[in-house]
Design a protein around this nucleic acid. Sequence first.
RNA 1: GUGGGUGUGGCCUAGCGGUUAGGGCGUCAGGUUGUGGCCCUGAAGAUCGGGGGUUCGAAUCCCCUCACCCACCCCA
Length: 419
Amino acid sequence: MPSYQAPRGMNDTLPEDAALWRHIRDTAERVARLFDYRQITTPIVEDAGVFLRTVGDESDIVQKEMYVFEDRGGDRLALRPEGTAAVCRAYIEHGMGSWPQPVRLFYFGPFFRYDRPQAGRYRQLWQFGAESIGSESPAADAELIELQHTLYQELGLHDVVLRVNSIGNLESRGRYIDALREYFRPLVPGLSRDSQRRFETNLLRVLDSKEEQDRAAVEGAPSILDFLDDEDAAHFESVKSALDAVGIAYEVDPYIVRGLDYYSRTVWEFEPPEARGQSTIGAGGRYDGLIELLGGQPTPGVGFATGIERIALNLKTRGIEPPEPEVIDVVTVPLGEAGAAACLRVARDLRAAGLTVRAGTPGRSMKAALRAADASGAAYAVIIGDREAADGVATLKPLRGDAEQRTVAVTEVAEAIRA
RNA sequence: GUGGGUGUGGCCUAGCGGUUAGGGCGUCAGGUUGUGGCCCUGAAGAUCGGGGGUUCGAAUCCCCUCACCCACCCCA
């Protein structure tokens, strides 16, 4: 019988990565609080309609990446592929429209996409996201971008590049796509094979082509920014001004196209420099029509999501370590029966004093026990054999530096370590 | 979903038709009487991802399958 493996595209996060993950999560939550965003936790499963209605029938997420199943009661449920639609569902369900607007929310949790796995792309992925719902103001867009930017700065990802764009509203986007099609149509024979296919299946993706032979055609293509109406253009200008005001560097990239249908106006993404492949570390945008699609009152919103695995990957490649790695203060070395009992009592007292204590395994030789204690990285070994136990003392042995070991009363080990 | 690459004890890896499948790291034990880090010795641990086939003989060749990686697609 073959032994079990984790499901494809899903990973165990091992203890060695726990501190890094905790650091990312703590930083994200702390930064979110600095902007007065409050946490919302929604179920991992939603009615499939929440995503089917909002993400876009044409999108890959709906077409082929969603885990959908029927429960025993016959309801069609989906493992959530993204956070925004679920948060909006909660906004409507809990009447947040009558809260002070905008409602600022953040979340942290697992999401699921039935993709073909690749480095940085998983079937279960963790995201941190923030949403500001109820404000049409460009100030909200800029606030989210600033929040996200602050997060990366706090984590030490100083070199990530911010690219922003405006994709206007549905009508102007439609006009743009028509114009783009007309522009490329005569050029199709000269395009790469991939781009010829994209011309038919996903026109906007032609703009993303990395093929050298497409470059001239792509560079001459019309820009969506020239198709924005006055209001959308003014909105985008205000977002950029706000970013300028707080000194956040960005690059306007008219070729950014967010994957989800519900986006309008501002869209953005953060990427490591020189990155290829599954490299986008986090992305966001405005989704003014989304709440209405879910049956709520017309309500504007804007938000972003960032991938925890991709952040972790980038921190690792830059050699950034969590500030507080897991440390052991003390390892006990119990020798003999009386020593073992005394060790248990001392360990309990040390833990009560807030020290991390690894209980040494009784029955090992002292040499073996001390080898293990040393390898653990602990600062001290507390040795209690029957000899010490009889006298009510412990041998406190510093494992780092060159201080001498000393004998202290079992009741005073914590004080001795603190001193 | 499409195309390509990889897969040897927990980790890294040698071997690429006939080896008791070798090494390093790690783990455990020991180097005399209760004291670690270096060093030394020993042990456990691999049906060579899984299944099938070719062959007198396969980790080594072929097929299928699974997983990971890369590109596409798409995206966090």
